[in-house]
Amino acid sequence: MADRGTAVYFPDTLGELLLLARREPDALIYSGGTFILNQRVGRFADLPPAVISLQDVEELKRVSRSERYLEIGAALPIRDILALGRSNVPECLYSALRMIGPSAVASLATLGGNIAVPGRVLTSVPVLSLLDARVELRRQGASRWLAVSRVHRPNGNLELAESEVITRVRIPLQPWSIEVFRRFGSELAPESEPLSFCGLARTSNRIIEEIRIIGSAGLPAPLRDRDVESELVGRRIPLAERDISTAVEVYQTLGTGLTPIQRDRFVRLVQWFLLNLPAS
């Protein structure tokens, strides 16, 4: 069968991958490909002239866990991350990954692929941002770490230099008293008015020690206000009605381009989260 002239490369090692990425700077780095295939029109994948497949690069499928971090290879399928179990993956991330798709999708989709979609913020990104996760970006002869919250520029492009590849994701492991993740709709279908919410809080003796709240409508700008979070630190639980309504007022004005339903869902989730903070 005649193909459309797409050259596909299958590097076996990270070294080969970085070399190929340098030689073919315009090539599509193909990890799970579920987003690309999901967005196609017609019965063929929309592939550029060169594709570099990560399917054989075992170095990108490793997992390691220390007391402080969980490190996940960028090309490890979501299914394999879920197989680590709830006790090894932060609860909010585990919940978010379960929402990425049914098992037939989770066996293909990867964490790196979920992060590196230009112009669209997919399910794992807000959660990883809230957990202060970072990605390792490598190219031949150089590597750097970048916060997941900075991978997507406000204009939708990715903060990746030419030939740079996401190789692993480092997630700090911290104890939280409550970790909540909720999602409505799907970022893959903007018409479903998607909204993801994640809330983390650490409390002790009825006092908030740390609190983080984020929302995402699938757009590059996250719905997060660090000033409100700092204001809430040190407050007593249950929070006073005035504290909650002050916070909610701020969250009501965050972000642009949200539909009334998205905004309403986000604000209600924030309210619900603040009302349900555990005492310790």
Binding site: T34, A45, S53, P77, R79, S103, A104, L108
Partner: peptide, 15 residues
């Protein structure tokens, strides 16, 4: 692993 055949381009079947 269970996978959706509509999300796999033919080149991924290699090997």
């Amino acid at each position: 692993a269970l996978a959706a055949g509509c999300l796999i381009p033919a080149f991924r079947a290699y090997g």
